[in-house]
Design a protein around this nucleic acid. Structure first.
Length: 254
DNA sequence: ATGTCGCGTGTGACGCGA
């Protein structure tokens, strides 16, 4: 079973690219972030024609998530229960016995901003949600754009980024709290090339200079850890003529 | 380099978010 996450930065712009990618990478589950579409504009027919079932949850201009799967997803949840949120950031469903949670974590803008306060509140709610989901789903995968670089090894210039957004101790503590719940950063189960990133700023020729961050992650529950066969970042779509600023991350389970 | 995208507003540059 293969699962993937990709922040497409507008599905309206990236739909052809995403369909091409699925043809080349026929994963069983794909979660999307930053679809930036209201639900009435979601391209369900095109995705279904490609052989996927799909659930979506969006809004105008910002955010928006989707869950694509070969098999039907059951018990689909949109956003965090009990956390009243005008922003569409979470979609979860059970596919082939695996609880799949796709999430677009808040960016947070800057550590001294209102958006950071919101990010922290959202992360608290996520911790509670994951804890509850683990009670009923032993096999669980949390994947998406976390907007957190968990360690300095996930940052191209850790000195410049020290204490900056994505790298604050508070954000990293939340990542560690997820690990303390038994979730495992699948990418780090394997030897990886140094300077492996999942996001490169559009500015400053960042991709060409490989100046990026690893902020897109796939975390697996303890019951799945021994089933993980591979976890890779696919840089290829970032080389396209009109790329998303994020690359997809893929996991293979036994 | 405050260096680029994408969206919405509303017709063409600008503000916002990332």
């Amino acid at each position: 079973m293969k699962l993937a996450t990709w922040n497409v930065n507008s599905l309206n712009v990236r739909l052809p690219q995403m369909l091409d990618w699925l043809t080349a990478n026929p994963v069983d589950v794909l979660v999307l972030q930053e679809t930036k579409l209201t639900d009435d504009k979601f391209p369900a027919a095109e995705i279904e024609a490609a052989g996927y079932q799909v659930h979506w949850f969006g809004q105008k201009t910002y955010n928006g998530v989707a869950l694509l799967s070969r098999s039907a997803a059951s018990d689909v949840i949109k956003n965090l229960p009990g956390f009243d949120d005008p922003q569409a950031r979470v979609i979860a469903g059970t596919v082939d016995g695996v609880r799949c949670i796709g999430a677009y974590f808040p960016n947070g803008q800057a550590p001294d901003s209102d958006k950071f306060v919101y990010k922290m509140a959202w992360l608290e709610a996520l911790q509670r949600f994951v804890a509850a989901e683990l009670q009923t789903h032993e096999k669980l995968v949390l994947m998406g754009d976390f907007n957190i670089a968990p360690t300095d090894a996930d940052v191209y210039d850790p000195i410049a980024w020290a204490g900056q957004i994505h790298c604050t101790p508070q954000e990293r503590a939340h990542f560690q709290a997820l690990q303390a719940q038994g979730l495992c950063d699948a990418f780090r189960l394997f030897e990886q090339a140094p300077k492996s990133w999942s996001w490169w700023d559009y500015r400053n020729l960042a991709f060409r200079k490989n100046q990026g961050l690893r902020i897109d992650h796939i975390l697996v529950s303890q019951a799945l850890k021994n089933e993980v066969r591979a976890c890779v970042i696919d840089k290829l779509p970032r080389k396209n003529e009109r790329p998303s600023d994020h690359a997809p991350v893929i996991i293979e389970l036994a």
